[in-house]
């Protein structure tokens, strides 16, 4: 599977334009005009969203103007490398919403070291346990900042 540079440019431009449209739509809920006491809350984000759309349009026009140069953005191997890095990260974010940050961190480190870096399961387990423990001590005990815990730790009375 080969993705051309032009296709990637166009997809990125549409994605950022969609983000800009979302920003514009969101700020419309707060009012974008100039009220009695100065600009309304949505005034600044609205024009930021407009600039995002304009910039995306500019980038897309530039990409179309240049035409197909045959430049390759990514081939199969590149995509596999990025996916091997990106998909676990997405899994980490999803897991941390469900199980809390610490368990997700430990699981992510364990599998990243074991399967990603091809170390032994024991060293992966040790790295995951020690890193999670150090993070727990730093954030929960020293800094007293409660991070997301999730149902498992709350069941054991840690929250």
């Amino acid at each position: 599977m080969i993705v051309s540079r032009n296709a990637a440019e166009l997809v990125t431009a549409s994605a950022t334009a969609a983000a800009g449209a979302l920003v514009c739509y969101g700020s419309l809920e707060n009012g974008v005009s100039w009220g009695a006491s100065g600009p309304e809350p949505g005034y600044f984000p609205f024009y930021v969203g407009c600039l995002i759309i304009l910039g995306s349009a500019g980038a897309a026009v530039q990409a179309l103007w240049r035409g197909g140069t045959g430049e390759i953005f990514a081939d199969g191997e590149n995509i596999r490398t990025v996916a091997a890095f990106l998909l676990p990260l997405i899994a980490l974010a999803a897991l941390s919403q469900w199980l809390g940050l610490y368990i997700a961190m430990a699981l992510y480190l364990f599998f990243a070291v074991w399967l990603g870096a091809k170390r032994t399961a024991l060293s992966a387990f040790l790295i995951a346990a020690i890193t999670t423990g150090v993070n727990f001590v730093i954030f929960e005990i020293l800094f007293t900042v409660p991070l997301l815990k999730g149902p498992v730790l709350e069941y054991f009375g840690i929250y």
Partner: peptide
């Protein structure tokens, strides 16, 4: 590179800040 891309990424940062 392209000034448009710089504009877009800067404004995305602004949008995130709001």
């Amino acid at each position: 590179g392209s000034p448009f891309k710089t504009l877009v990424s800067m404004m995305l940062g602004f949008a995130c800040a709001t």
